[in-house]
Amino acid sequence: MSKNDEAYVFGIFRKLDHKHIGKVEFSTIMRGEFQWGLIGYRLHNQFWRKGYGKEAVKGALDIAFNDLKFHRIEAHINIDNTPSIKLAESVGMAFECIRKGFIFEFGEWTDNLVFYINSK
């Protein structure tokens, strides 16, 4: 999918022992005059709240802007996912809006918060 500029997946590995602890991924929403992408991130739960997520997402955003040439990156976050909201805010992402009935999960259409960051 990276060859077609559809998606890019990066593993997160702990520096100490190179243990795989999660992933960060980007999906291309639209190119052309938008250069717009979506970020997703996941850490294995035993590595939560130790700073790994912030470091990985900050590094991935550098790649998104400098290497992949996105201008805007969005994160779509479940309303009750406080740790993800805090992570997005900690890397400089700003709250933009609530998209109502945006993602079909758990058997229903759920609302999502949209956070964004633009290249500098």
Rank of each mutant, 00 (worst) to 15 (best):
G32W: 06
F34Q: 06
K50Q: 13
E96L: 09
K3C: 14
D17G: 00
N112M: 10
N78M: 14
V91Y: 01
N78Q: 14
I79Q: 09
S119A: 11
F106N: 15
F102N: 08
W109R: 13
F47L: 04
K120T: 09
H18A: 08
C97Q: 09
A75P: 09
I85P: 01
G101W: 02
K69H: 14
E89L: 06
H76W: 13
L38E: 14
V9M: 15
R42N: 14
I117C: 04
V57A: 07
D80R: 09
D80A: 07
H76Y: 12
K23I: 11
L87R: 04
A60H: 03
A94I: 13
T110Y: 02
Q35F: 11
E89A: 07
A7H: 09
N45D: 14
S84C: 02
F13L: 05
G92L: 01
K19A: 00
A75V: 06
I12Y: 02
I21R: 01
I73R: 05
D17F: 00
G32P: 03
D67V: 08
A94F: 13
N118Q: 15
L43A: 09
E6R: 10
H71C: 09
G40M: 02
V57I: 10
N81I: 08
A56L: 04
R72A: 04
Y41K: 08
K3F: 14
M93Y: 02
I63G: 05
I77M: 11
S2Y: 10
D5L: 14
D17A: 00
G101L: 05
K86C: 12
F104H: 11
V24H: 00
L38M: 12
R49N: 12
K58P: 01
Y116S: 14
I21L: 02
P83F: 02
E6T: 12
M93S: 03
F65H: 02
I39Q: 08
F13P: 00
K69N: 13
F47V: 01
F65Y: 08
G51V: 01
R72M: 06
L68I: 08
D111M: 06
K69I: 07
R42I: 15
K50F: 10
G22P: 02
S27K: 13
S90V: 04
V24I: 04
M93H: 02
G53L: 01
D62M: 08
I77Y: 06
N4S: 13
K23N: 13
C97A: 15
I103C: 05
K69L: 09
S2N: 08
Q46Y: 08
K100L: 10
D67R: 11
Y8E: 04
K23D: 12
I63M: 05
H44M: 12
